[in-house]
Amino acid sequence: MGKIVTFGEIMLRLSTERFLRFSQAKSFNATYGGGEFNVAVSLANFGELSEFVTKLPDNEIGESALMEMRKRNVISKNVLFGKDRLGIYFLETGAGTRSSNVVYDRAHSAMAKIKKGTFNWDEILKDATWFHWSGITPAISNSAAEECLEAVKTAHKLGLTISCDLNYRSKLWKYGKEPHEVMPDLLKYSNVILGDIDTAYFMLGLNKEYPNYQDLKSLPILYDKIVEKCPNLELIATTLRYSVSASHQRIGGVLYDKKNIYDADIKEVTPVVDRVGSGDAFMGGLIYGLLNHIDDKQKAINIAVASCCLKHTIYGDYNLVSVADINKFIEGENTGKVSR
């Protein structure tokens, strides 16, 4: 079984309790999370060999983050330590018609200040079969974007499958470059992309489109414009999210293989316990599905959607479910009855 390597930043997550606003909070729940790490945790829960590559501060908080990786059975042998700090994000959880809100405090973090050449990617990826990155890493700093490009180039050279979750975060692109100036060079090496069509167009510098995801016949035309910009692209997936309220989501998904569209049925998810990390859960499920059901893309997108739906029922960034849980959900055993 080949190793899956993900690259990014693990952060300290500080969230308000009981749906309180920031101004009401007298304490915060402290957990960990981060897009690429969340994917690694999902894959470890599914029984895959997953490794997370990052840089942490050389202090007790950095050591605590490393302990969290080991607790979640994620390989951490290529985690580096240095000066600076661990990135933090504050979460105010919404309810009903009030949306959740995130405030980032990750400037000058150990990952944001990495330099090109920090990691020996030839060594790290020599026994891997899959490399995953997201649009968050190149958003935190120019140097992080440069190191991410080195990783992607090495993975391509070694023949790994490369996946990317576009993960556009407008609050992060603050260092003087726009996504369309950075992302095309990274995306041209990717084989699997997860993201909305309009986000992909924005990052690739294409004119904005307004896709109708219910019109499956029109989607290939729009997806093909992304394929034209990404010569190594084989698959594009999109999470379909229809927010009824912060507490009620309708979740589906589509997958395009340059020939056919595969769509998963829309599922009702209510009440929502924690929406954060649900896109990462979709990505983890998609990677697992593609690795284990290479000839059944419908099965792969069904697993991705099931993973996403189940994550909404779990507090924290991670999708703490098993393959058995996902199979039960797909088979319709999602009534919430007590298992005795």
Score class of each variant (00 low, 15 high):
M1T: 12
M1W: 11
G2W: 10
K3I: 15
F7R: 05
L12T: 02
L14Q: 07
L14W: 06
L14P: 09
L20R: 08
R21H: 15
R21W: 12
S23F: 14
Q24P: 13
A25K: 10
K26E: 11
N29F: 02
T31R: 00
Y32H: 12
G33Q: 10
G34M: 11
E36P: 15
V39Q: 11
S50G: 07
E51N: 12
V53H: 12
T54G: 10
K55E: 15
L56M: 11
G62L: 06
S64D: 11
A65S: 00
L66R: 08
L66N: 12
M69R: 09
R70I: 10
K71I: 03
R72F: 11
N73K: 15
V74C: 04
N78W: 01
N78Q: 00
F81P: 15
F81N: 13
G87W: 00
I88M: 06
F90G: 05
G96P: 13
S100F: 00
V102G: 00
V103H: 06
D105P: 00
D105A: 05
R106Y: 13
H108Y: 15
A110C: 08
M111Q: 12
A112S: 15
K116I: 02
W121R: 04
A128I: 10
W130Q: 06
F131L: 13
G135D: 14
A139K: 08
A144R: 12
K153S: 14
G159V: 11
L160N: 09
L160C: 10
I162F: 10
D165G: 11
N167P: 12
Y168E: 03
S170L: 09
L172A: 07
P179N: 05
V182I: 15
L186P: 09
V192I: 07
I193K: 02
I193Q: 03
F202G: 00
M203D: 06
L204G: 03
L206T: 04
N212H: 06
Q214C: 03
L219W: 12
I221H: 09
V227Q: 04
K229H: 09
K229W: 13
K229S: 04
K229A: 01
L233Q: 02
E234S: 08
I236C: 00
L240S: 07
V244M: 07
A246P: 13
S247V: 03
R250M: 02
L255C: 05
D257V: 03
K258P: 14
N260L: 03
I261A: 00
Y262K: 00
D263L: 09
A264F: 08
A264D: 06
D265T: 13
V272F: 07
R275Q: 07
V276L: 00
G277N: 02
M283L: 01
G289F: 04
D295L: 06
D296G: 05
K297T: 07
K297A: 07
V305M: 04
A306G: 08
C308G: 02
H312F: 13
G316M: 00
G316S: 01
D317Y: 01
N319H: 04
E331V: 09
G332I: 13
E333G: 09
G336F: 14
K337F: 14
R340T: 04
